[in-house]
Amino acid sequence: MRSAELKTEDSELPTGNGTNSSSVPRLAFRGPRSQDPAWVRFGLTALALVAMTVLVVIPVISVFYEALAEGLGTYWTNLTGDPDTRHSVLLTLAVAPLAVICNVVFGIAAAWAIARFNFRGRTLLVTLIDVPFSVSPVVAGLMFVLLFGLQGALGPWLRANGFQVLFTVPGLVLATTFVTLPFVARELIPVMEAIGPDEELAALSLGANGRQIFWRITLPNIKWGLLYGVILCNARAMGEFGAVYVVSGRIAGETCTMPLQVEVLFQDFNSPAAFALASVLTMLAVVTLLLKVWVEGRVRGQRAEKSHG
């Protein structure tokens, strides 16, 4: 029995390098791929390139082309001349970070509860976290209208106490937070489960209090996963349209975020301005993408380090 086990292990690891588990799939993969006929390899590669060009490269280039069609000067005027457009940029740069902060707090709390405790309703919570992914953002927006509107469940009471949620910045943050809710939690749950509770318990028995454990042990261990979640969350928050469209009331210069302002400008047949603003959103997305690639490398590095340790 014992020798049989050893034999299967050997056949899976022809190099005999038992410590590097990542070599297994790579070795298994290299064989069949190099045997594929040339036309299959070239065909598939070409297909992928054509799809990427049509779906991603051409649209992105055309955004910048349209934006800059009338020259850099006009581009700059289009971006900075209109106070509503200027406001929309600032508004997005305020709403997105606020939503990210809400999500970081919620994400860490939810991931901690789910990864560290086995409580009644744990599975339900895991499922509920995913609801914003499956609900259409427009429906999410309508939900808030029903909840906080004048005929809604909480609207009249809040209005009586001097709070207004719909058509205000808090409403935008709320809707954006809802739509991006799963990003941080989803990213942190597997990280925290993989790390396990032992280091935190060790810190506790060494005399650390809850605050010290969080800042000195938990946070350093999850920081790359957290940053990755934040980047994804931020990208989604800046680009959010549907839910924000419904709750904002689209008051130009007040509740129009960048994506909403792009739409407003476009509807006004002001294409150059719409594309100029869209190009700013695109640039933000590219920066996010680069950050994401960098952080992914760090996350992978950290995981490799852990599996060796």
């Binding site: 032992d198 280091e199 060790a202 028995s205 005399g207 209090n209 350093p220 340790g309």
Partner: peptide, 20 residues
């Protein structure tokens, strides 16, 4: 009393060293 106040040294099976 909480684990924190018991002044106990605990050595974990898989060491639980702080990796960072």
């Amino acid at each position: 009393r909480s684990a924190r106040d018991r002044n106990v040294g605990f050595v974990f099976q898989h060491y639980a060293l702080f990796r960072h």
